[in-house]
Design a protein around this nucleic acid. Structure first.
Length: 513
RNA sequence: GGCGGCGUAGCUCAGUGGUAGAGCAGGGGAAUCAUAAUCCCUUGGUCGGAGGUUCAAAUCCUUCCGCCGCUACCA
C-alpha cells in the first residue's frame, strides 16, 4: 500500500535561551497535526530540533564561560526534554551542529553557487566594534563630540567587509508567480498579504556569509566565512529528508507538507527559504503557516521583563493533557492570545472536568453498576438515538475539515457540541428511570452513549493522547482499533469493560492565605 | 508616510446582502446517573461614528475615530 506522505516541521529553536511557552505551543500544535494525520492513515514524518550557530550563541556561550559546542549541547538537551515532557511525537530531532547538517548546508551552498545564485561582494554599514553589530543610519545618534554613535552609545565606523550574496532580487518575479499559483502557500491570509506587499516592494540581494565570528558552518572553499545563520537553519528541513541524497529512505518526504512557524519568522520561511530552494532547483514546501503569540496574564513575554514561562511546571500542576488542550482550545490558531491561570482553570474545569470527564464518568459508572460492566446490547433505535448518532457520524468530516485548515479550536468546538448534545440526551433519556421500567431501552441508551464517547475519544487522541488512551481503555476499544478507520465500524456489544476511573479531576484553587 | 488587519451581548469570538448568533459569566426552574457535575428556560447588543448604494447592509462604497501588524540582512 502506498500511503500518502505528510511531512510537518516546527522551526528549529534557537538555543540562545531556554524553552518557554512559545516553543511548547508550536510543538504541541505540530504534534497534534502529526498525530491526527497518522491516525488518518498518512505516512507522517514530523521534525523538530535546535538551531545552534550564530553570533548570539557564540556570545551566550562565552558569557556562560564554556565553549559553544558544550553550551549548545546543554540547551539542546533542555529542548529535547521539553519535547519529551510535552509528549511530542517527533520522528527526528535535528541539530544544526550535526555532521549530516553541515554536509547538507555545504552541499546546498555549492549547488547555489553552481547555479549562479551566489556572488562575492561586500557588505557595508555602520559597525560598532564594541557591540559587534551593524546599525542602520536611522538608528544612530550623534554624540556630544559630533561622532556617530550606536543606540548603546558605542562609537561606530563605516565598515566594508567581504561577503557572499544570494541573488534574492532575481527571484522576486518567480516568488510572486508562486504565491499567485499557490494561494494557500502562506497562511493565514493576513500574513500572506504582508509577504506579498513585502516582495512587491522589491527584494535586495541577501548577505549570506559572515567573517566577524566563527561559530557557524564554513563556506565551502572560503573558510574565512561562515554561512549566514538563516541559510544554515532553513536547510535543516531538507537535511532531515536526507539531502543531498533525496533517493534515500526519507527522500520521499520532500517537499515538506507544512512548516509551522511563529509570526516573527514568517518572512524567512515564505520568502528566503523558497528562493533558496528555487536557486538550488529543489521543490518548494506546500504550506507555511504562521501562528500568533501568547501574552501571559495580559503581559507580553519579553527579555526585558523576564516573564518567559516554562510550561513544565504548569504540566506538573495541571496535567499534560489539560495544558495541551488549553493551548489549542483557548485561541483560534493564527491569532494572538492570553495565557492566564484563571482562564486555564475555568476552561478546563468547564470543558474537561465538567464536560467530557463527567460525561464519561456518569456513563461508564452507570454501565458498571447497571449493565453488567459490558458494552450494553443495542435494541431498537428511537428518534432521539438517531439524532445523536447522526451528529456523531458527521463529526469526523467536520473535524477533518477544520484540521486541514489548522483550525484546532474549531475542531474542538465541533467536538464539544457533540459532548453537550450527549449530556442533553442522557438527561432526557434518563437511564436511571429506565432502570426501573425498561431495561432493554436503558441498555440501548447506554450503548448509544458509549458509541458517542468512542467517537469523541478517537478524534481527540491527537490533542490529549494520554487521557484519550485511558478513555478508550475504559470503553474496551482494542489498541489496534484506534485509527480513524475504526470510526466506520460499530462498537462491539458485550465487550467487557474495566472499572471506570476519573479522567480530568476538577481543579480547585487553594485558598489564598 | 505606504500597505494590510481589526472594532458585533459583561468576556472571548462566529456571522460577507434578506427578520442579530455561540460559549463563558449573570438570573429563574428541574433532575439526582455522575467529578455539586448535568438539563431546561432566561436577562443582555441602535453590529466603533457619520453619510451613501439597495426593495433589503453587521455584511458593499465613502469618510472619520480607535487599536494592531508589516515596511529586510540579531535570530
Amino acid at each position: 500500500m502506498n500511503q500518502q506522505k505528510f511531512y510537518i516541521t516546527t522551526p528549529i529553536y534557537y538555543v540562545n535561551g531556554a524553552p518557554h511557552l512559545g516553543h511548547a505551543y508550536t510543538s504541541v500544535a505540530a504534534d497534534v497535526l502529526a498525530r491526527f494525520k497518522r491516525l488518518d492513515g498518512f505516512d507522517v514524518f514530523f521534525l523538530t530540533g535546535t538551531d545552534e550557530h550564530g553570533q548570539k550563541v557564540e556570545a551566550a556561550a562565552r558569557a556562560a564561560g564554556i565553549d559553544p559546542q558544550s553550551f549548545t549541547d546543554k540547551v539542546s538537551a533542555d529542548f529535547q526534554d521539553m519535547a519529551r515532557r510535552m509528549n511530542i511525537s517527533n520522528d527526528d530531532f535535528i541539530r544544526t551542529t550535526e555532521a549530516r547538517h553541515k554536509a547538507s548546508a555545504q552541499a546546498i551552498w555549492l549547488k547555489l553557487q553552481e547555479n549562479g545564485a551566489i556572488y562575492l561582494g561586500a557588505y557595508e554599514g555602520w559597525y560598532a566594534v564594541r557591540d559587534e553589530a551593524f546599525y542602520d543610519e536611522e538608528e544612530l545618534t550623534t554624540g556630544p563630540d559630533g561622532t556617530k554613535r550606536a543606540p548603546s552609545g558605542a562609537p561606530v565606523e563605516w565598515v566594508i567587509e567581504p561577503s557572499y550574496f544570494f541573488k534574492l532580487s532575481a527571484f522576486q518575479d518567480r516568488l510572486l508567480a508562486y504565491y499567485e499559483a499557490n494561494p494557500d502557500f502562506i497562511a493565514p491570509q493576513a500574513k500572506r498579504n504582508e509577504i506579498l506587499s513585502f516582495v512587491r516592494g522589491g527584494l535586495k540581494d541577501l548577505s549570506i556569509s559572515r567573517t566577524s565570528f566563527s561559530w557557524g558552518i564554513p563556506v565551502p572553499g572560503d573558510e574565512k566565512h561562515v554561512m549566514y545563520v538563516w541559510l544554515d537553519a532553513l536547510v535543516n528541513y531538507i537535511t532531515a529528508a536526507g539531502y543531498p541524497d533525496l533517493n534515500g529512505p526519507r527522500g520521499g518526504y520532500w517537499p515538506a507538507s507544512l512548516h509551522l512557524v511563529g509570526k516573527e519568522i514568517i518572512r524567512f520561511h515564505a520568502v528566503y527559504w523558497p528562493a533558496f530552494l528555487m536557486g538550488a532547483g529543489l521543490a518548494l514546501p506546500e504550506k507555511v503557516f504562521s501562528h500568533g503569540w501568547w501574552t501571559v496574564e495580559g503581559e507580553k513575554m519579553s527579555k526585558s521583563t523576564g516573564n518567559f514561562i516554562d510550561v513544565r511546571p504548569l504540566v506538573e500542576e495541571f496535567g499534560l493533557d489539560t495544558v495541551r488542550f488549553f493551548l489549542l482550545r483557548e485561541v483560534p490558531f493564527g491569532n494572538d492570545g492570553d495565557f492566564s491561570r484563571k482562564a486555564l482553570i475555568s476552561r478546563t474545569n468547564a470543558e474537561l472536568a465538567n464536560g467530557i470527564g463527567n460525561l464519561a464518568q456518569r456513563t461508564l459508572s452507570f454501565i458498571a453498576k447497571n449493565a453488567g460492566g459490558v458494552v450494553p446490547p443495542k435494541g431498537t433505535l428511537h428518534e432521539a438515538d438517531h439524532v445523536l448518532l447522526e451528529l456523531a457520524a458527521e463529526l469526523p468530516e467536520k473535524v477533518r475539515g477544520a484540521m486541514s485548515r489548522l483550525a484546532f479550536h474549531e475542531a474542538l468546538d465541533e467536538t464539544w457540541k457533540l459532548i453537550r448534545a450527549a449530556d442533553g440526551y442522557i438527561d432526557h433519556q434518563a437511564p436511571w428511570a429506565l432502570r426501573k421500567s425498561d431495561i432493554a431501552r436503558m441498555n440501548t441508551v447506554l450503548f448509544v452513549l458509549a458509541a458517542v464517547l468512542r467517537t469523541v475519544a478517537l478524534l481527540l487522541q491527537p490533542f490529549m493522547p494520554g487521557s484519550m488512551a485511558k478513555l478508550l481503555d475504559q470503553l474496551g476499544v482494542a489498541a489496534d482499533a484506534r485509527q480513524f478507520t475504526a470510526l466506520d465500524t460499530a462498537l462491539a456489544e458485550g465487550t467487557p469493560l474495566p472499572a471506570p476511573a476519573g479522567l480530568f479531576p476538577r481543579f480547585v484553587e487553594a485558598e489564598a492565605k
